[in-house]
Nucleic acid binder design. Structure first.
Lengths: 201, 201
DNA sequence: GATGATTGTTTACACTGTAAATTTATGTTG
DNA sequence: CAACATAAATTTACAGTGTAAACAATCATC
């Protein structure tokens, strides 16, 4: 145990801890993971994490922030290649869905969990606003391109609501067994697109 | 303490317990409520509830079942008066929203919580299917009236998804502060209705 | 090399759900 | 009616939780 930790060391350990925590959270849900087993996974004593994070809530906040960052990165990547606004919008939606289905626990940590102390973690706060922005940029683009008219933020939230709704019902196993989630999403998307009058007519 | 409990007595205590549990759950969330304080709220010792329910999970199941029942009753009431299918559908949607906003915790208990042992409680199971049916009846009516074409269950799930999405984002405080939930719901509803081509054109 | 600060560990505590032992109060029986 | 049997409720006890506080171990600096 070296006497002094460079801030890189601290950062490194924090990252290591976040990775381990994320893996455990993804397995059995955040609530079910114990500080003691998290510590064991890192090969340190149960109290060591407390040197790097105030408490379990702070760890949760860090893991959430990381998830938001990955999410934003995934969406930005999906919109990176040049394409027309409608394509870009569809691509963003697909990336959103892909992320939620690939990392359901991360998705729920981000968008389902209600962390009352959320405001105490500026890093998390920043990650959230970045993710939110990523979700509305393409709507603005569509409006600017004249494909759509109205309040960009409101319309963005509409797409968000609809995606979030199906995904949450699917992820929590609430859909009727007879329902094919993919079909349901397709119907939703096409209906909303038609309702907005995008792409012609 | 009478020596033998009639099944009415048992039922009565169970109901009393469920009411108390619901109140506590609504205040601070189900997870945060302690068996000890639930017992205290009932004026009994901490272990007494275990005579009437196997464990805390069973209490949660009972509370959820009660919530589903109230929910179904509310929706059925909203659809009771004779009206044309479109009105009925709108009325059901409004009742859905009203319930979710009036009892957000109950709503989350019903539709957000993932209770892995859900299948072990037939009463809960029954309450769930009743609620689900209530949510699709009016879509079937619309299809029969020729206002709509397609798979009733799928379309019903579409409405459900969209309602659930906005409501969850609102209830978990994820909407941007600039967004008016009522406006958002109105936009969603009108867009989907137009997209489905209901009511003319 | 002694000192002091900083890292990590050990111990300890209040709290959780609940199993097991124990008490209490009643209905049944001699 | 007294004695018992038994269901109902309570008390006690335990393993496990997050984490505060005491402690031990390491190294930079004089």
């Amino acid at each position: 145990m070296p006497r002094v930790l460079s801030s890189e060391d601290v950062e490194a350990f924090r990252r290591r801890l976040c990775v381990a925590a994320e893996a455990l959270f993804a397995e059995r849900g955040a609530e079910a993971v114990t500080m003691r087993e998290l510590a064991q996974a890192l090969g340190v004593s149960p109290m060591t994490p407390y040197r790097y994070f105030k408490d379990k809530d702070a760890i949760l906040a860090a893991v959430r922030a990381a998830a938001f960052a990955r999410f934003a990165t995934a969406l930005e990547a999906a919109m990176a290649r040049p394409m027309d606004p409608l394509q870009r919008s569809r691509s963003a939606g697909e990336a959103y869905i892909a992320f939620a289905l690939a990392e359901p626990q991360a998705y729920r940590l981000m968008f389902d969990l209600n962390q009352p102390t959320e405001g105490d973690y500026p890093e998390l706060q920043a990650a959230i606003v970045r993710a939110r922005r990523t979700m509305t940029v393409h709507v603005e683009a569509m409006i600017e391109a004249g494909l759509l008219a109205g309040d960009a933020e409101l319309i963005g939230h509409m797409f968000w609501s609809m995606l979030h709704g199906v995904l949450m019902l699917q992820l929590t196993g609430k859909l009727a067994p007879t329902i094919d989630p993919t079909k349901l999403r397709a119907l939703l998307f096409s209906t909303v697109v038609r309702g907005l009058g995008i792409g012609g007519r």
